[in-house]
């Protein structure tokens, strides 16, 4: 097999020479805590970003709804925005945004057709994402959030069965 012609290379390790250990500027527990606080302080920025993302996903959905043909390109556009929303929510304390967008991505990735039911399910997910931001549902959104996510999961499971 290929391993018969195996060459092992040890590249020069320059990183250890460039980093110091301890002292001012070292990343200790306090520095990590400060960095986490900086991210927490970016929540206002996140809310601006996500409003933009919600506008984008609305537009992508409008195109999907109006599309004729196989709708693949339009669905891909919805997926792209949903994937961005999924990647960001949890970093800023909006875990439910990540969970809902994850469900939406899962639905789009796994669905073997894009029929009216799938398009309707996409609409439901987008409405839920807007509700989370509109109602400022942080974390997993408590009982209401759990119920919302369970409902969406049920819809997806049914369509993907």
């Amino acid at each position: 097999m290929a391993d018969d012609k195996l060459e092992v290379i040890n590249p020069p390790n320059t990183l250890k020479q460039k980093v110091g250990t301890g002292g001012a500027g070292a990343v200790d527990l306090e520095a990590l805590e400060r960095a986490e606080q900086v991210i927490a302080g970016m929540t206002d920025s996140y809310l601006d970003w996500v409003v933009e993302d919600l506008k984008k996903i609305d537009k992508a959905y409008a195109n999907l709804e109006a599309a004729t043909g196989d709708r693949k390109a339009e669905m891909e556009a919805v997926f792209h925005v949903s994937h961005d929303i999924k990647g960001q929510g949890g970093s800023f304390g909006y875990d439910l945004m990540t969970s809902i967008a994850n469900e939406l991505c899962r639905l789009i990735e796994k669905a073997d057709k894009i029929g009216d039911e799938e398009v309707e399910a996409v609409k439901l997910h987008i409405a839920s994402l807007k509700l989370v931001i509109g109602e400022d549902m942080k974390g997993q959104g408590g009982k209401a959030g759990e119920k919302m996510l369970a409902g969406l999961q049920q819809v997806c499971d049914k369509l993907l069965a």
Partner: peptide, 8 residues
């Protein structure tokens, strides 16, 4: 370990 990574 607490590394200073400012030069990376």
């Amino acid at each position: 370990a607490d590394y200073n990574i400012e030069n990376l």
